[in-house]
Simulated scan of single mutants.
Amino acid sequence: MPDSLQTALTAIQRVSTQTGLSVVAKILDQVYDIGRTCSDTYRKIKDQFIRHDAVLGEWNYLVDGRGLNA
């Protein structure tokens, strides 16, 4: 268990794959409102750009700025 947030961040930033893929991480220190809802515009277009995976869809998803059917 990391002893501080900085220790955890440093450990995460050191992660990489054998092919050179690396992780970019930063600490967000902004406080966000709880319980905010999405705008109607977002709800209408989100399915064009975001596809949630069948397994743990809240964590596993694909975002394509060109649109999923492009």
Rank of each mutant, 00 (worst) to 15 (best):
A8R: 06
L21S: 05
R66K: 13
M1N: 11
Y32S: 07
L68D: 00
V63N: 06
W59N: 15
R36K: 15
R51N: 06
G57N: 01
Q30M: 09
D47R: 05
Q30A: 13
V15Q: 14
P2F: 12
A70D: 08
Y32Q: 09
K46P: 02
S22N: 06
N69L: 11
S4T: 04
S16T: 05
H52D: 06
W59G: 04
L21P: 04
K26G: 10
A54L: 14
A70T: 10
Q6I: 07
L5F: 07
I50N: 03
D29G: 12
L21W: 05
Q48W: 04
S16C: 01
L9H: 00
Q30G: 10
D64V: 13
G65R: 14
Y32K: 04
V63Y: 13
W59Y: 07
T19E: 05
T7V: 12
D3Q: 14
N69A: 08
L28T: 14
L68P: 03
T17N: 00
Y61L: 06
S22H: 07
T10V: 14
I50D: 03
F49T: 00
T10F: 10
T7I: 08
D3M: 08
S4W: 00
T10W: 02
G57K: 02
Q18N: 09
K26W: 04
V24G: 09
G65S: 14
T41S: 13
G67D: 03
D40M: 01
C38R: 10
D29F: 02
G65H: 13
D40H: 04
Y32G: 09
Q18I: 10
S4A: 04
G57F: 02
M1C: 12
M1V: 12
G20K: 01
V31H: 08
S22T: 07
G20F: 00
D33G: 14
I12A: 12
D40Y: 00
D64E: 14
F49V: 08
S22F: 00
K44M: 09
D3W: 03
D33R: 15
Y42C: 10
D64Q: 11
R51W: 01
G57Q: 05
V55N: 05
M1Q: 10
I45E: 00
L28C: 15
F49N: 02
M1P: 11
A25K: 01
D33Y: 13
I50A: 02
A25D: 01
V15T: 09
L5M: 12
D3N: 07
H52N: 05
L28G: 10
D33T: 15
Y32E: 12
S39Q: 01
L62V: 11
T37D: 10
Q18M: 10
V24R: 12
I12S: 02
R66D: 14
I27H: 08
R51P: 03
S4V: 02
P2V: 08
P2L: 08
H52R: 14
Y32V: 11
R43C: 05
F49P: 00
L68Q: 03
L9T: 03
R43Q: 08
M1Y: 14
R66L: 08
A8K: 11
T10H: 09
R43N: 09
Q18S: 12
Y61S: 07
D47P: 03
A25S: 01
Q18H: 13
K26H: 11
D33H: 15
L5H: 10
T10C: 03
C38I: 14
E58M: 10
T7A: 13
N60L: 07
R66Q: 05
I27N: 04
K26N: 12
G67L: 01
P2E: 07
